[in-house]
Amino acid sequence: MTITLVAGARPNFMKIAPIIDAIENKKSLGFDINYRLVHTGQHYDKNLSDTFFKELNIPFPDINLEVKSGSQAQQTAAIMVGFEKELQKHPCDLVMVVGDVNSTMACTIVAKKAGIKVAHVEAGIRSGDMNMPEEINRILTDSLTDYFFTTSEYANKNLTNQGVQTNNIFFVGNVMIDTLLKNEHRFKKPEIWNTLNLEEKKYLVLTLHRPSNVDEENQLKALISQIKMEAKDYPIIFPVHPRTKKLLNGLNLNFKNLHYTNPLGYLEFNFLVKHSLAVLTDSGGITEETTVLNIPCFTLRDTTERPETCNIGTNVLIGKDFNKLSNAFSKLFSRQWNKGTIPELWDGKSAERIINHLIEIYKL
């Protein structure tokens, strides 16, 4: 059996890493299972792609389609053209896509039109917000997927409501957490830790990249200004996404406690998260990591496709409501933040479950 694994953006790499480990483990036990790793090039900044392959010990891709940036349509089209050629040259038994980026949707469409079955890792999650490009990617991908590997019972329910047969849904847990738990002992201090003399639980981490937060200058300026005010004198470490960096130029947000840094590698970024007082983010994946690391998390969005991080985790939805932001900071500083628990099957063994299911399905 040959699986084509698709990775396109930073979160994909973290999800692919444990799957490759699980495949290699089964190969070593004599199972006839192989993979070919395709990097679409959707993220092409070295700090957002190559670094993660090195840090997470992922073999470098068999091919990089090098699609780079463009509009949603341009990028999706480029991925589809490149991936179609890839499958023609290198046929496979199964295409495995992960997450909800443009590469996920585009490669699913190409695979299905080529008559190849698709497995979707992190299937079934929904925010209900059709203004998010990722939500459209999720819905389209899951409408074509053959095998659905899910992170929660919530995702299972979404799929059954969609009409998916239950025997094609496999609740396996969260592969991102596989990577987190495997590498937690390897987290390392970034240079900014010593430069700013940071101390454990005495700083905040901020990340922003969603169009709803960063595409409108006045909105972005108001949000960062409010966070700066609520944070008192706590340093705010802001690794800036390339997309956001362009928008910050000229806004003159030179606050004393706001510290910009280039995108960080996986091990350095999660060191900052683990030792922070709290994280403010519009990233879904980071809310999963903060839940497992038991770090308070402010989600700067109105909706989440990962409700388990709010229901039982450490995450609180803030959106653009500055009253909610102020109340959340009050809880944080008064040490009244809810202590979260870890969702079911987020135990570091999700990738192993995925490959075991595929071995059973394909009777290897």
Rank of each mutant, 00 (worst) to 15 (best):
E86G: 02
M80V: 01
V164E: 04
Q336N: 14
L332M: 01
C297Y: 01
K201N: 14
G115N: 07
Q42A: 13
V175Y: 00
F52A: 03
N323E: 14
V118C: 06
F322I: 13
F170E: 07
Q75F: 01
S276I: 06
L247V: 15
N257D: 13
Q75T: 12
N158S: 09
M229G: 01
L196N: 05
F298S: 03
I139W: 03
C297P: 00
V316K: 05
R36D: 05
F31R: 00
L364P: 07
T195A: 14
V110K: 04
T104A: 08
S103I: 09
V164D: 06
G41W: 01
N218R: 13
R126N: 09
L251E: 04
I177E: 02
G313I: 09
T51G: 13
S212E: 13
Q88H: 05
P18T: 06
I63K: 07
T304D: 04
L293Y: 03
K157G: 02
D347K: 05
S350W: 04
A278M: 11
A7T: 06
L29A: 14
G250C: 09
N197Y: 03
N294F: 05
V316W: 01
T76C: 01
F187D: 09
H43I: 11
I295G: 03
G348R: 00
K256H: 12
T40A: 05
M1W: 04
F271D: 09
D32P: 08
K274L: 10
L317C: 01
M14L: 12
T287S: 15
A328K: 12
K324I: 08
T291F: 00
L140Y: 05
V6I: 15
S276A: 15
T145P: 01
T299W: 00
H90T: 13
H209V: 11
L300W: 08
G163L: 05
G115I: 10
T160E: 14
Y234I: 03
I355Y: 03
K274C: 12
L29K: 15
D93G: 10
Q165D: 15
L264I: 11
V175Q: 01
D62M: 02
Y35N: 04
V38G: 02
P61G: 10
T151M: 14
E66M: 09
T104K: 04
S28K: 13
K182D: 10
F53T: 00
D62E: 12
G30C: 11
N262A: 15
S212N: 09
E153G: 10
M105F: 08
I19P: 00
L332K: 02
N252Q: 15
D129F: 07
L144V: 06
P61N: 06
N197M: 05
R138V: 07
W346C: 08
R36Q: 15
E134Y: 10
S330C: 03
V292H: 00
